[in-house]
């Protein structure tokens, strides 16, 4: 019993064999829903009915015409600013921790804790902290900074920054770990060469460390930007998507599950996707970096 299968055919069989399962999964759970999503975005489907009335581009026009839908991107802005600060903090801490600091591993573990905590629990913790007589205001008043105490959730000018801070606190350790890993993978000889050339600490940072981190900064910024545009779990859990804290994604949820307009909600999901892609392309142009990491 000799199977005369050529090497080429064997290879093809193997490739198909290995690819079939991931491809089926990809098509079923990613491509098919995505295509359906696009199709729904042109209908006024109510999520239940068996009829899918075609409305053309009406949903897309509605998104840009209705300030209640598109205007909430202003709230996302605070998450974006928070994300930038988050990256600066993460990079700074990573630089510190890459040096020979005492109990370095201890610091690393402690700083990584916020990221390991249950995300929902984190939001609840902050919900209590932000209460009028919660921990934050109590501490501020106790140390004589009572003037800074605020109605963190109640004040419309403060709430989104307060929520963005939760996001910052929760996610900076992740950025930090990535930066740390990247810093440690920079070859030691580059630093030695710089040292021989008489470079100062700042020069080493500016001309050796940061250029080597460019690709990683790019990755982290991408995560930050898309995370900011898609901020969802914090306003959803903390305020139940109240109007003052609504983000584009919580509005999408509202449109779908409160107002039963799945067509419009699908269009919003597509618009969000397009915006994320656009913003990331712009960011790549600005930050530069030729490597195709992302």
């Amino acid at each position: 019993m000799n199977f005369h299968v050529s090497y080429k055919a064997q290879r093809r069989l193997l490739i198909i064999g290995f690819l079939i399962i991931p491809l089926v999964l990809l098509v079923t759970f990613s491509l098919y829903p995505a295509i359906k999503l696009i199709l729904y975005s042109f209908t006024s489907w109510n999520g239940l009915s068996t009829s899918y009335p075609w409305v053309g581009l009406h949903n897309y026009m509605e998104i840009f015409k209705n300030p209640a839908l598109f205007g909430v991107f202003l709230h996302n802005l605070s998450y974006f600013v928070g994300g930038l600060v988050q990256n600066v903090i993460a990079l700074g801490l990573a630089l510190l921790l890459s040096k020979k600091v005492k109990v370095r591993n201890g610091f690393r573990s402690v700083l990584f804790i916020p990221y390991m905590l249950n995300a929902v629990a984190v939001v609840y913790i902050f919900q209590f902290m932000y209460q009028d007589n919660g921990a934050l205001n109590t501490i501020l008043r106790a140390v004589g900074l009572g003037g800074l105490a605020a109605d963190w959730i109640g004040n419309n000018h403060v709430i989104n920054w307060a929520l963005a801070f939760v996001s910052l606190w929760e996610y900076f350790p992740f950025n930090m770990v990535i930066y740390l890993a990247a810093i440690q993978s920079i070859p030691e000889d580059m630093y030695e060469a710089a040292l021989l050339d008489g470079a100062s600490g700042w020069q080493t940072l500016w001309y050796v460390t940061l250029p080597n981190l460019r690709a990683i900064i790019q990755v982290n910024l991408l995560l930050t930007v898309s995370g900011a545009l898609e901020a969802f779990n914090i306003p959803f859990i903390m305020t139940n998507s109240a109007p003052a804290a609504a983000t584009f994604l919580t509005q999408t949820m509202n449109v779908a599950f409160v107002f039963n307009n799945y067509g419009l909600a699908s269009a919003m999901a597509i618009v969000l996707l397009v915006i994320v892609v656009l913003v990331i392309s712009i960011q790549r142009k600005i930050v530069g970096g030729g490597d195709d990491v992302v």
Binding site: S30, P33, T224, S226, E230, A265, S266, A269
Partner: peptide
Amino acid sequence: MKKWVAVVSITGVSALALAGCGTQ
């Protein structure tokens, strides 16, 4: 990680929630 959370929320949650239930 945030990205994956985000990507899942777009393609996974919205798409599944909005689209997955679309079978006749």
